[in-house]
Amino acid sequence: MRNKFLRALVFLFSFAIAGYAVVQYGLLDASKAGLVAFKLQKPDFQLTPWVYVLYIHIATGILALLIGPFQIFMKQTKKRSLLHKRLGYVYVISITISGIVGIYLSFFATGGAAAGLGFLALDVLWVATTWTAIRKIIGKNVQAHQAWMLRSYALTFAGVTLRLWLAPMAILFGDFEAGYRVVAWLCWVPNLFIIEAIIRNLASRTPQSPTLFNS
């Protein structure tokens, strides 16, 4: 029952936030969308090429956010193994692109160096955990592969938790930029602690199984 509830929450939030981002950045006037509108308030900021890199980061991040739950929760069978691999390739490529351009964006982060460092660490760890998972599956260590992919998706899910934390932190600090500095860290550090606890719990329950979720 608890696993089903967790699964429902992950699907709900990932699809809801992905839909919100598509509407905000894809269907609205770009100059009124989120960070773009905030950057336009600063007359000395050069919007290009930053805005194009931002859209690459958002598009690839959304793709990874939507693929992740299917990879984690989809029951593994021989028939689905090919689909799992193909979705995995798209997931890894999406994160690699999004993470690399995210490093560029971190140097222009709203909130200055404190926020930029938070996002830089997030992007580096995001790509690193994902490719560590790839190394593990190449070595045929399925359980380690799943554990590292869970860490990878916990960082992917920062796209959700960032938006959940942003309004409360902006209200708490009374200033958007001050709140954003905190959210740059708050959106992913707790995610890693939570997923690590989940990984340890799953491993302790199925110590002899080669898999975590689909055993």
Results as ranks from 00 to 15, higher is better:
residue 4 K to M: 12
residue 6 L to M: 12
residue 10 V to P: 03
residue 11 F to Y: 13
residue 14 S to P: 07
residue 15 F to C: 08
residue 16 A to V: 06
residue 17 I to N: 00
residue 18 A to N: 04
residue 19 G to A: 14
residue 23 V to E: 14
residue 26 G to K: 11
residue 27 L to N: 04
residue 29 D to C: 07
residue 30 A to D: 14
residue 30 A to S: 15
residue 32 K to C: 06
residue 36 V to N: 13
residue 37 A to H: 13
residue 38 F to M: 15
residue 41 Q to A: 15
residue 46 Q to P: 04
residue 48 T to Q: 14
residue 53 V to F: 13
residue 54 L to Y: 05
residue 60 T to W: 04
residue 62 I to N: 05
residue 65 L to V: 09
residue 69 P to F: 01
residue 70 F to G: 12
residue 74 M to S: 15
residue 76 Q to P: 06
residue 77 T to D: 13
residue 79 K to S: 10
residue 82 L to R: 09
residue 83 L to D: 14
residue 84 H to D: 12
residue 86 R to V: 09
residue 89 Y to P: 04
residue 91 Y to N: 03
residue 95 I to S: 01
residue 96 T to K: 01
residue 96 T to L: 14
residue 97 I to K: 03
residue 98 S to N: 10
residue 100 I to G: 04
residue 101 V to E: 08
residue 102 G to N: 05
residue 102 G to Q: 01
residue 104 Y to K: 05
residue 110 T to Y: 11
residue 112 G to C: 11
residue 115 A to D: 08
residue 115 A to E: 05
residue 122 L to A: 01
residue 123 D to T: 02
residue 124 V to E: 07
residue 125 L to D: 00
residue 128 A to H: 02
residue 131 W to R: 09
residue 133 A to T: 02
residue 136 K to G: 10
residue 137 I to C: 09
residue 141 N to D: 15
residue 143 Q to P: 02
residue 145 H to T: 01
residue 146 Q to E: 15
residue 148 W to D: 02
residue 148 W to S: 02
residue 150 L to T: 00
residue 150 L to N: 00
residue 151 R to V: 06
residue 151 R to A: 11
residue 151 R to S: 07
residue 153 Y to T: 00
residue 153 Y to D: 01
residue 154 A to M: 02
residue 155 L to S: 03
residue 156 T to P: 06
residue 156 T to K: 04
residue 157 F to D: 00
residue 157 F to N: 00
residue 160 V to F: 09
residue 161 T to E: 09
residue 162 L to E: 02
residue 163 R to M: 10
residue 164 L to T: 03
residue 165 W to D: 06
residue 168 P to C: 11
residue 171 I to R: 14
residue 175 D to F: 06
residue 177 E to M: 06
residue 178 A to N: 01
residue 182 V to E: 02
residue 185 W to H: 04
residue 185 W to K: 06
residue 187 C to F: 00
residue 189 V to K: 00
residue 191 N to F: 01
residue 191 N to P: 03
residue 193 F to G: 07
residue 194 I to L: 10
residue 195 I to L: 11
residue 197 A to L: 11
residue 197 A to F: 11
residue 199 I to W: 00
residue 201 N to T: 12
residue 201 N to F: 10
residue 202 L to F: 09
residue 204 S to E: 14
residue 207 P to S: 13
residue 208 Q to I: 04
residue 211 T to N: 12
residue 213 F to K: 06
residue 214 N to R: 09
